[in-house]
Write a protein that binds this DNA or RNA. Structure first.
Length: 461
DNA sequence: ATAACTCAGCATGGAGGCAC
DNA sequence: GTGCCTCCATGCTGAGTTAT
């Protein structure tokens, strides 16, 4: 059954060979015992060959029968076998190939500076009006629509642009980062030319500086929502709890006690000892965490919310644990980044290797990895062009928060470990869909809040 | 003259429902 | 689990029409 796997013809091999041999469709059809109309469909890739027909045709035309099979839309036996044995793996590989390049960035500016362009040199001794002190807020939801290290609010950049340039000038920032200079330039009625070596920076800067139709964004979000709803419900709504979804789950490292070798859930050991000393709940030995061997992780507390109700928490139920187990055993049929995190990387930590974190995917629970991969797949399917980029902007805005880098702390819950890839022994697993829903709302609000301008920003890598 | 396309219709076989 | 039934997609044919 080749439904849905029909391919482009690989170039009319059958037809070319037939014509070269001076055979009509009727004549060749007679030879392989099918009707001429059926051969016509085979030649156009609309119908596939049986193995026997391919063999016969191969002999007739002097061409490898496998190529003829491929041309008529039938997969070779080994590929069919691979699909049968590992349907999810084949799907992932195929989707990965197409989805990895869902967005591509220009590597050079389109805008050409004319020879007549005038570059103004600012006299450092000139009396320019720069405020002695600039105080701005970083709290707005639009500013927070997407995080980036070294981000500066546009309102802190604007005074400099206004002091050194005039309306209609081109402001260039060759190390643009999140593109806040570009946002500031547009707000000051200047054009902007931005660039950064980092693809992440280019992605963020483009989305902050290019307008996006809010209506189109909202419509695409609705399509996306219904596309991922079954997956998100499966991942975050355990069977038996109607309407309630898991908003976040606290996970704890599990160590082996160096005295009695029993498994110690770090969370239990802390509670057992009152949070000051680390005591083994089994043998009551006083432990030094640095000496303990990491043997695994497990969920220790679930925060759920029902529609309109406040969040409540409880120890993970059997259904919740069963769901996590089920997800851990289920293949992810979408593209997942597999960038290795070896000791050659600047951000490598030996503790990560001990925890089994060997690649980017290792910074996520299996459940959140599945959710993120499904979400990205659905984004690529729900939109294209500017709106797709905008949805991916909201997506990457969640990627960090959905990782294991959020430390659980009794006094300061939801405390992210900033500026480091350190993974705490007690950490949060956020509901990816809840994160994305909020981020998409922030992004939409940002697009709606953009003042109209005829000025444009260009971003390239 | 040949290719391309359309359509009705038949055979086959897998999937799912159902009774036992 | 087995046998039976229905449904339906697919493979295929041949008559006919249209395009090149």
């Amino acid at each position: 059954n080749m439904e849905g796997v029909r391919m482009e013809p690989i170039g009319g091999l059958i037809k070319r060979r037939r014509e070269a041999m001076g055979l009509s469709q009727q004549a060749l059809a007679d030879q392989i015992d099918v009707s001429k109309s059926y051969l016509s469909r085979i030649e156009s890739g609309e119908r596939s060959l049986t193995d026997d027909q391919a063999k016969l045709l191969g002999q007739m035309l002097g061409a490898p029968s496998e190529l003829l099979l491929l041309e008529s839309g039938r997969l070779p036996a080994d590929v069919q076998g691979a699909i049968a044995a590992d349907a999810a793996g084949v799907t992932t590989a195929l989707r990965g190939r197409t989805e990895q390049s869902a967005v591509s960035y220009p590597t050079s500016p389109v805008r050409a500076l004319s020879a007549r362009s005038e570059v103004r040199i600012v006299d450092p001794d000139a009396d320019v009006a720069i405020p002695a002190r600039i105080e701005v807020s970083k709290a707005s939801t639009t500013y927070r629509a997407h995080s980036y290290h070294t981000k500066v609010p546009p309102s802190a950049i604007k005074p400099f642009i206004e002091a050194f340039t005039e309306r209609g000038d081109l402001v260039s920032d060759p190390f643009c980062g999140s593109g806040m200079t570009g946002v500031a330039a547009l707000e000051c009625e200047r054009d902007a030319l931005l660039s950064d070596l980092s693809p992440a920076a280019v992605h963020i800067a483009r989305n902050y500086t290019a307008p996006c139709d809010p209506k189109a964004f909202r419509a695409a979000f609705e399509r996306l929502k219904s596309a991922v709803e079954p997956t998100m419900r499966w991942l975050y709504n355990p069977v038996g709890i109607k309407g309630a979804s898991v908003e976040y789950t606290v996970w704890s490292d599990v160590f082996a006690c160096d005295a009695c070798a029993s498994e110690i859930t770090y969370w239990d050991a802390l509670h057992h000892s009152g949070g000051i000393e680390l005591v083994c709940p089994t043998c009551t030995a006083v432990l030094n965490k640095a000496n303990l061997k990491w043997v695994g992780e497990r969920p220790v507390r679930t925060h759920v919310s029902e529609k309109g109700r406040r969040m409540t928490h409880h120890a993970p139920t059997a259904a919740e644990v069963a769901l996590i187990d089920e997800v851990n055993q289920t293949a992810i049929p979408y593209w997942v980044p597999m960038m290795k995190f070896g000791s050659d990387r600047e951000m490598w930590r030996s503790a990560h290797a001990a925890m089994g974190i060997a690649d980017v995917a290792g910074f996520y629970t299996r459940r959140n990895l599945h959710a993120l991969a499904a979400l990205r797949h659905a984004i690529v399917g729900a939109a294209e062009g500017r709106v797709r980029e905008a949805l991916l902007f909201a997506f990457t805005a969640c990627a960090n928060r959905a990782s294991k880098r959020y430390q659980w702390n009794a006094k300061r819950p939801t405390n992210v470990m900033t500026g480091t890839l350190y993974v705490s022994s007690l950490r949060y697993e956020w509901n990816v869909w809840s994160l994305f829903r909020r981020k998409a709302a922030d992004v939409l609000r940002y697009f709606e809040s953009r003042p109209p301008t005829t000025r444009t920003a260009e971003v390239f890598q």
